[in-house]
């Protein structure tokens, strides 16, 4: 099976910023991403959990993009403009994908 190099960008960000982030990604031409709920965690801002929360303020989401390596910089620039001042984590890992034409 032929594999192709790609980048996996994982952005964990406050749930209230989800729409702003995906809008920025769309404007940067990144139209493929997956949004996952994050059940809880701990970091510089302390521990948090989705359990029992009513406000979206306490929740986080993970936005995951798989892209060709040459499209990484525009994506990071677009994402950084949104996430710069907010609680969250941005990470990039090397990965491989099948069906390269889809990315």
């Amino acid at each position: 099976m032929e594999m192709h190099n790609a980048k996996r960008v994982e952005i964990i960000i406050e749930a209230v910023m989800e729409r702003q982030l995906t809008n920025a990604l769309n404007e940067a031409g990144v139209t493929g991403y997956t949004i996952l709920p994050v059940s809880g965690g701990s970091g510089r801002s302390g521990q948090w959990s989705r359990e029992g929360q009513v406000s979206r303020a306490g929740g986080m989401v993970a936005v995951i993009c798989l892209i060709r390596p040459e499209r990484l910089d525009p994506l990071l620039e677009a994402a950084f403009a949104v996430v710069e001042r907010h609680i969250g984590v941005v990470s990039v890992t090397d990965t491989q994908v099948l069906r390269a034409e889809r990315f």
């Binding site: 910023m17 303020a57 306490g58 609680i87």
Partner: peptide
Amino acid sequence: SYIAVPAAMRVALPEANPALSL
């Protein structure tokens, strides 16, 4: 408030410590 305002504050004042307000 702990439903409507916290979300707006996270968008508008991201440097504020959400743990203090909540």
